[in-house]
Amino acid sequence: MPRLLRPRPPVHRLRQVTAAALVCLALVLALRPPPPATGVAAGPPTVPVTVAAADLPAGTVLTPADLAVVPLPAGTAPAGVAAAPDGLDGRVLAAPVRAGEPVTDVRVVGPGLWSAVPEGLVAAPVRLADLAVATLLRAGDRVDVLATTAGGDGGGGGPPAVEVVAGDALVVTAGPAGDDPGGSGDGGLLVLAVPTATAQQLAAAGTAGSLTVTLGRP
């Protein structure tokens, strides 16, 4: 005698349909591509800063080819920096700069440079007898200035006399060294930060004899 199957209750059928629907929904969600990005997260604000495009020695007359503009995070740019190269075109570097280094007002000859002179001191120009010595000096160096004069009564009757006329003087800027073929007069020229009385002694010593320097720790 054939066995009769008992019909399943509707609740059981509903559960099967619901389970199948959930499986299909999960597959659809898994295979769906991610939504496109609506935007890029904004980074910290930046400011334009003019930097050296290559290593530049002291005495370089700046041109647009020597400079570049890069963005730096706001708040990290040094004071006195130029936002565009236009204001630096034709200015003379008072100290060497490395490629990528911001060119600030104290790096070029001008009022900003003189602000590097400590309070109570004056900026005294000094021309060295040995022009090659200037190539060894950088802004921030400390030097002793030596004056050499003829011995005896000044007629060359004795050995030269050497004396220190400025000790531990701060180098504010070192001009380009060389034999100055163009006659610009910049060869071997230093600007030192010294007391007023020392500046007077340097001027007198430079007139009476020749000057050179020895280097100390900056």
Score class of each variant (00 low, 15 high):
Val126Phe: 15
Asp55His: 07
Pro195Phe: 12
Gly87Pro: 09
Pro64Trp: 00
Ala53Asn: 06
Val49Pro: 02
Leu22Met: 01
Ala41Cys: 13
Trp114Gln: 12
Gly43Pro: 10
Arg217Tyr: 12
Arg98Lys: 06
Ser115Ala: 11
Ala193Val: 02
Arg13Gly: 11
Val28Gly: 13
Pro71Arg: 03
Asp186Gly: 10
Ala74Leu: 15
Leu121His: 10
Val191Ile: 11
Asp105Ala: 15
Gly43Met: 09
Val17Arg: 15
Ala68Ile: 04
Ser210Glu: 09
Ala21Val: 07
Gly140Glu: 12
Gly154Ala: 01
Ala193Asn: 01
Pro159His: 05
Ala77Glu: 10
Pro195Lys: 09
Arg32Ala: 04
Arg91Ile: 10
Leu131Met: 13
Gly188Ser: 07
Thr38Cys: 05
Asp130Tyr: 14
Thr149Phe: 08
Ala94Glu: 10
Gly185Pro: 14
Thr76Trp: 00
Val61Trp: 10
Arg13Met: 15
Ala134Ser: 06
Gly158Arg: 14
Pro73Met: 02
Val122Leu: 08
Thr63Met: 07
Pro45Lys: 07
Val133Cys: 09
Ala193Asp: 01
Arg107Gln: 00
Pro85Leu: 01
Ala37Phe: 05
Ala166His: 04
Gly120Gln: 03
Gly120Met: 10
Arg142Tyr: 11
Ala199Asp: 15
Asp105Trp: 00
Arg142Pro: 08
Pro34Met: 04
Val143Gln: 04
Gly156Asp: 13
Gly75Glu: 03
Asp144Asn: 04
Leu131Asp: 12
Gly87Met: 11
Pro85Ser: 00
Leu4Asp: 14
Thr207Lys: 13
Pro36Val: 03
Pro34Glu: 02
Arg15Cys: 11
Ala166Pro: 03
Gly175Val: 09
Val194Ile: 14
Gly178Tyr: 00
Pro176Met: 05
Gly157Cys: 10
Gly158Val: 03
Gly167His: 14
Ala205Cys: 14
Arg13Tyr: 10
Val126Met: 12
Gly112Tyr: 01
Thr214Leu: 13
Ala116Ser: 15
Asp179His: 11
Thr76Val: 07
Val162Gly: 15
Ala134Val: 01
Ala53Gly: 08
Asp144Thr: 07
Val162Trp: 14
Val191Gly: 11
Ser115Arg: 15
Ala177Arg: 00
Arg217Cys: 14
Leu113His: 05
Arg91Lys: 11
Thr198Ser: 10
